[in-house]
């Protein structure tokens, strides 16, 4: 080896205690690496461009629909973007999270990472932080382009509503990412994890609504039960949260919305935010417990 002789000149340290990186240092190291890898991977530009194109298209359509009524461009578009966000962002976040740990395990890189002086919690939180930053960057780029179109065509009225939507969308992305990571630590193959993530997304986005409707008819659910069940779905909690934060009435959601508005009043926004944050915290906590118990190979 070229460095064979030189290797022997290395300082011989036989001390039994080597420097151990701090928790924060390890987490940040993994976060940096995850962010760098996300940006150079295929999914990041694909999702970013896809989301940006759809957001800009939605903005143009909202503007076209406004006619000459002199509407508040940002506020109206924020409402228009809500449905788009509910579809796209959970899919982005859950699939990105699902492939993360399972992919490392499948490639054999997870064992090598865990053979370093790091804990599993540090690896998991580092990946979570890095992917969260990547997802939020992707969402902000999409919304940023959309905001540019709106500012150019309709001025800055209602920009507050728009920023609320951006912030809540980032929160949704982070929450759904935690659920994606939960799937990822529970599976061995990235393809299986992606499949489960897509099925979970379908369930949360489409099937839960259908189930709720069917349940209401079959079990004759009371309105408070209907509201509680709807709130258990993080995507529904996000939707109600956005509508509440935009100062719109939940009456548009039917009897359950009316019940929620009248029962909880001003506290409703905090309850819904709490539900969202709770999903994220529970998701990442469950992922950490499962990850600590599963073999890295």
């Amino acid at each position: 080896m070229a460095g064979g002789d030189a290797m022997s000149t290395m300082p011989a340290t036989l001390a039994t205690t080597q420097a151990c990186p701090t928790f924060l240092r390890s987490v940040l190291a993994f976060a940096r690496r995850e962010l760098r890898e996300a940006i150079t991977s295929r999914w990041f530009p694909l999702y970013t461009i896809g989301f940006a194109v759809l957001a800009v298209a939605t903005s143009f359509m909202s503007l076209a629909g406004s006619g000459s009524l002199g509407f508040a461009g940002f506020g109206r578009t924020a409402a228009g973007l809500l449905n788009l966000v509910m579809l796209i962002v959970p899919l982005m976040a859950m699939t990105a999270g699902a492939t993360s740990i399972a992919g490392e395990r499948e490639r054999g890189t997870l064992l090598y990472l865990l053979a370093q002086p790091v804990s599993r919690l540090e690896v998991l939180l580092g990946k979570y932080l890095g992917l969260s930053l990547a997802l939020c960057a992707s969402v902000c780029i999409g919304f940023g382009l959309s905001a540019g179109v709106l500012a150019w065509r309709a001025g800055g009225t209602g920009v507050g509503s728009f920023l609320v939507l951006v912030a809540l969308t980032c929160l949704l992305a982070v929450v759904m990412l935690a659920l994606g990571l939960l799937i990822s630590v529970s599976t061995r193959k990235a393809s299986v994890a992606t499949g489960i993530a897509v099925f979970a997304w379908l369930t949360l986005v489409f099937l839960s609504d259908l189930g709720l409707m069917a349940g209401t008819i079959v079990f004759k659910l009371r309105v408070q039960e209907l509201f509680a069940l709807a709130t258990l779905n993080p995507i529904q909690a996000f939707k109600m949260s956005v509508i509440t934060q935009l100062n719109a009435s939940l009456d548009v959601l039917g009897p359950a919305g009316v019940y929620a508005s009248r029962t909880f009043g001003g506290a409703l926004a905090w309850i819904l935010l709490g539900v969202l944050v709770g999903w994220g915290v529970l998701g990442i906590a469950a992922a950490a417990i499962i990850f600590s118990r599963r073999s890295p190979v």
Binding site: T17, R25, A29, R107, T109, A115, Q116, P117, V118
Partner: peptide, 29 residues
């Protein structure tokens, strides 16, 4: 593990990483 340097049977790095970046990552850890 802070006392151990580990060499696997087959290097399990991320293939897309550059050598310097890989070294820098593990150096930071």
């Amino acid at each position: 593990r802070a006392n151990i340097g580990y060499v696997p049977q087959e290097l399990a790095f991320h293939d897309d990483m550059r050598v310097a970046a890989a070294m820098a990552f593990f150096a930071s850890l």
